[in-house]
């Protein structure tokens, strides 16, 4: 950082680097929403003063190296098993704050059983779920959330729903489970939705702190590299193409969660 810059006396600090994050440069592609959501998680951990009592569970996927970027304890789970690992961590350390951070290849494909049962049991964990409709880390293959007709490296002619089935709507599924207290889908693609997303993450984290049940925030994200777009174009594409299939909104919010002050 340029420390030589003089800050005029009448200026106050509006935004600075979150304390909960390390200064490590992220490995994400330029313009990836992962970076934005990492930052929001860091800000919320700071605001709720959770840094010293949090344990994160890292997934497999683009965010597999998330433990390098946060100043909190992390464990690495097998592919898709983050909610199962988080369950064990929370049950043995009920005073800790446990969150998982998963992508759509992790949560919606190989880890579907784990997340549904964790939600159904009402485990006191919080999940941040990044949905960018593609497998980013392995080179842009078709994911369960890939949109109908969308071209990927493993569906070069576009996703044919007769063969590959339909995109899975995880938030709607999780909202049906009894144990879930707060299930919402937000976007991370423009200023307004990012501000809303931060509030949603904060509410989800508070849900766990207050012991109200399972909480999950799904984030509609982008993948400029594997969608073959420039970052801004991918943000617009996510907004225009993904939002109609994956409608934004809160799918489940118990009264107690609604009463939380965010």
């Amino acid at each position: 950082m340029n420390t030589t810059t003089q800050i005029p006396e009448n200026m106050e600090l509006v935004y600075q680097y979150p304390d909960s994050m390390t200064k490590t440069y992220t490995h994400y592609c330029p313009g990836c929403v992962h970076g934005i959501v990492h930052r929001l998680v860091g800000e919320v951990l700071d605001e709720l003063d959770l840094r010293e009592k949090s344990i994160g569970v890292a997934p497999v996927g683009c965010s597999v190296l998330i433990y390098n970027y946060f100043n909190v304890d992390f464990v690495e789970a097998a592919h898709g098993r983050a909610p199962a690992m988080a369950t064990g961590l929370k049950r043995t350390n009920p005073d800790k704050f446990i969150f998982t951070y998963q992508g759509d290849g992790d949560l919606a494909a190989i880890g579907t059983a784990e997340i549904i049962h964790a939600a159904n049991r009402g485990e006191l964990i919080s999940t941040v779920f990044i949905n960018n409709a593609i497998y980013g880390m392995t080179g842009g293959q078709m994911a369960p959330t890939t949109l109908p007709g969308m071209k990927t490296t493993s569906s070069p002619g576009g996703r044919d729903c007769k063969i590959a089935g339909y995109p899975i709507k995880m938030s709607e599924i999780l909202a049906q489970t009894e144990g879930a207290a707060y299930i919402t889908r937000e976007a991370g693609t423009d200023i307004r939705s990012i501000r809303k997303l931060k509030k949603a993450i904060k509410r989800a984290f508070l849900t766990q702190i207050e012991g109200l049940g399972f909480s999950c925030v799904e984030v509609l994200a982008n993948c400029p590299t594997n969608w073959n777009m420039d970052p801004w174009e991918s943000m617009l594409w996510s907004k225009e193409q993904m939002t109609p299939y994956f409608p934004l909104g809160t799918y489940k919010m118990r009264e107690e969660v609604k009463a939380l002050k965010v």
Binding site: L13, V14, Y15, R39, D190, I194
Partner: peptide
């Protein structure tokens, strides 16, 4: 708010 790499400090 939109920066994925936390480049900015704002006053």
């Amino acid at each position: 708010t939109i920066c994925p790499d936390v480049v900015f400090t704002v006053y």
